[in-house]
C-alpha cells in the first residue's frame, strides 16, 4: 500500500520539483557566472555575491524595502485587528461588511497602481486636487520623493489591510464567548481583556497574516513602477524592481546573485517571524 501511494504522489512531486527547484537551480547557476548578453558565461565563484552586497544601490533598495515592509506591517496589522473588532459579530450586516471590505483584494496589482496613479496626477487627480485646494500643497508624485513614498504606503495599506481584517475577523468569531465572560467576571479592563484574551487567541491567524503580508509587501513591484517608475531618483525603487532592472539590462549573473540573496532574506525573515510569534506568549508572565 505504502509503495503504491508513492506512485500516486510521484507526478505531483515531479511537478513541484520542476516548478520550484529547476528555476532556482538555474538562477543559482547564473549567479555563479559572469554572464552578459551574447558573451559566453565564465565562472565567477562568489564574486557576483560580493558585488551585490557591496553595491550601494542594492543595499539602498534593501534598506528601503525593509523600511517599507516594516511600516506597512506596523500599520496594517493593528489597523486590521481594530477594524475586525468593530465589525458586527452576527446578523445580515456581516456579509455586507465583509464583501465591501474584500473588494480591494479583488483588484489586480497593476489596476491598483493605475487607479492611484490617476488619482495622483498633478493638478488633475482627485488626491492631488484635494491637497492643493484643502492644504494648499502641491502634491507631485513624480517630483517629490515624500509624496511618492507616501502614496505607495497608503496604497498598500488601502489594498491589503482588508486581508488582515478578514483573517482577524475569522479568528475573532472563533473565540468562545465564555472567555470574555470570564474576563468580565475577573474585572478585567477592556485593554487587559484584549491583551490577555483576544490577542493570545488570535495568535495563530496573526502569524498567518504577518507572514503573508511580509512576504507580499517585500515583493512589491507593479505599483511603484506604475505610479512613478520607481522614482523620483531611486526613492521608490524596492528590491524587486531593482533586481528586475538588472536582469533587463542583461546582467544575468549579478541579477541571479541578487535574486538568490533576495530569496534567502525573505525565507530567513519569515523563519524569524514564525519562531518569534509561536513562542511569544508561551513566555510566562512573571
Amino acid at each position: 500500500m505504502k509503495n503504491r501511494a508513492w506512485l500516486f504522489v510521484a507526478p505531483v512531486l515531479l511537478l513541484v520539483a520542476l516548478n520550484a527547484l529547476v528555476p532556482i537551480m538555474a538562477v543559482i547557476n547564473y549567479s555563479l557566472h559572469y554572464s552578459f548578453a551574447g558573451s559566453a558565461p565564465e565562472f565567477a565563484g562568489l564574486n557576483n555575491y560580493i558585488e551585490v552586497f557591496t553595491d550601494p544601490d542594492f543595499l539602498g533598495a534593501l534598506r528601503r524595502q525593509f523600511l517599507f515592509s516594516f511600516c506597512v506591517l506596523l500599520v496594517q496589522i493593528p489597523l486590521g485587528i481594530l477594524i475586525a473588532m468593530q465589525l458586527p459579530k452576527s446578523g445580515k450586516s456581516v456579509v455586507v461588511c465583509l464583501v465591501l471590505l474584500g473588494i480591494p483584494l479583488l483588484i489586480p496589482h497593476t489596476v491598483v497602481g493605475l487607479l492611484w496613479r490617476i488619482m495622483t496626477v498633478y493638478e488633475v487627480g482627485i488626491i492631488s486636487k484635494i491637497f492643493s485646494y484643502v492644504f494648499d500643497y502641491s502634491y507631485r508624485v513624480t517630483q517629490n520623493p515624500v509624496d511618492a513614498v507616501l502614496t505607495i504606503f497608503f496604497l498598500d495599506v488601502w489594498h491589503w489591510t482588508p486581508l488582515v481584517v478578514l483573517l482577524s475577523y475569522a479568528g475573532l468569531v472563533a473565540i468562545p464567548d465564555q472567555f470574555y465572560q470570564a474576563a468580565a467576571i475577573d474585572g478585567a479592563s477592556a485593554w487587559k481583556t484584549f491583551r490577555y484574551v483576544t490577542l493570545p487567541k488570535l495568535r495563530a491567524v496573526l502569524i498567518i497574516a504577518l507572514l503573508l503580508r511580509f512576504m507580499d509587501s517585500f515583493m512589491i513591484y507593479a505599483e511603484p513602477f506604475i505610479i512613478s517608475g520607481g522614482g523620483p531618483g531611486n526613492w521608490n525603487t524596492y528590491l524587486n524592481q531593482y533586481v528586475a532592472r538588472k536582469a533587463e539590462s542583461y546582467e544575468l549573473g549579478y541579477a541571479g546573485a541578487a535574486s538568490i540573496a533576495y530569496l534567502y532574506i525573505v525565507v530567513v525573515c519569515c523563519f524569524i517571524f514564525y519562531t518569534i510569534m509561536t513562542n511569544l506568549g508561551k513566555g510566562i508572565k512573571r
Binding site: F179, A188, Y196, P200, I284, K285
Partner: peptide
C-alpha cells in the same frame, strides 16, 4: 464553564493573580 477558560499567556500564578 464546560471547558477550561484560562488565560493562555499566563502561568498558574498569573491566572490566580489576575482577578
Amino acid at each position: 464553564f464546560q471547558f477550561p477558560v484560562v488565560y493562555d499567556t499566563m502561568n498558574v500564578y498569573g491566572n490566580l493573580e489576575f482577578p
